[in-house]
Design a protein around this nucleic acid. Structure first.
Lengths: 142, 142
DNA sequence: TCTTGACTTAGAGTTAACTCTAAAAATTAT
DNA sequence: ATAATTTTTAGAGTTAACTCTAAGTCAAGA
């Protein structure tokens, strides 16, 4: 029913240090304390951590995550701000995924290139493998 | 034929400060200097910057990018290391794209959720929109 | 009860990647 | 020729996000 900071650290892969740091930064205003001052995490706190990891994983700063949490704490008057925030994050994420796709193409080109010259030497790579030359043009332009 | 640091800054979106910093860190060992000490960037230097941005964009540290550049400078004896490095980066990138896809699902869920309660209030969201409840289960588990 | 390991706090230290400053030299525009 | 802009260097400062330390408190097992 309640988890110690160490148990949560294990579950989430974050360190106890980091969890305390998040709390200090205002990212975990829900976590209760036991009579003697120990943190007691609930399942719902774990859900919050999942969301925090999600937003962090899409490049949101802890400061902006805190803004969202502050809005949440403020109640229904901030529903629109929260929705808009997720919409902005979705756009950012789409842009990010497109970027990663482009990066993937460059890396695939490099892998093909190195594989080819390791197998057959670097002289006349493109004559031997014209697809590689076409790929280069596509990936690096010009 | 040759570009000043300011011109390169404009082209790449990096600042001149950042470009000098990259050079200091050993990421641009190709950039020439004019007789009077000004940096002169070539088109091939711009290609290097494209690759650096690609690797940085997939989460590689400047230190690891430098390692790659050092291998490149060392010549053909490091072809395998370089290939393996790109293969590792590809795996990392695939993992990253999967993660982003999962994050996207969570964000889509939140957008659907907030859109729904902004439109119809928060009471009985899931009764009114059972697909949302199913989505929640799928996205957040349990 | 004793011991061992987990937890507490405040606060200091670390790391990566910039970001800026100042003073001088080079280049470009008028 | 003069003024304005750009670039140079070394080195200091900043920021985000941890990461660790110390000194003490709490909890569980033998």
């Amino acid at each position: 029913m309640g988890y110690s900071i160490g148990q949560v650290a294990k579950k989430t892969g974050l360190t106890a240090h980091t969890l305390r740091y998040y709390e200090k930064e205002g990212l975990l205003p829900f976590v209760k304390k036991s009579g003697s001052g120990l943190r007691v995490f609930s399942d719902s706190d774990l859900d919050w951590l999942v969301l925090i990891e999600c937003l962090k994983g899409t490049g949101m700063s802890l400061k902006d995550i805190k803004q969202y949490i502050d809005w949440y704490m403020e109640g229904d008057s901030t529903l629109n701000q929260r929705l808009e925030m997720f919409k902005r994050q979705k756009l950012k994420l789409e842009e990010q995924m497109n970027q990663l796709q482009k990066h993937m193409e460059k890396i695939n080109y490099k892998i093909a290139y190195y594989t080819e010259i390791i197998a057959h030497g670097s002289e006349g790579v493109f004559e031997r493998n014209p697809e590689l030359a076409a790929e280069r043009k596509r990936v690096y332009g010009k």
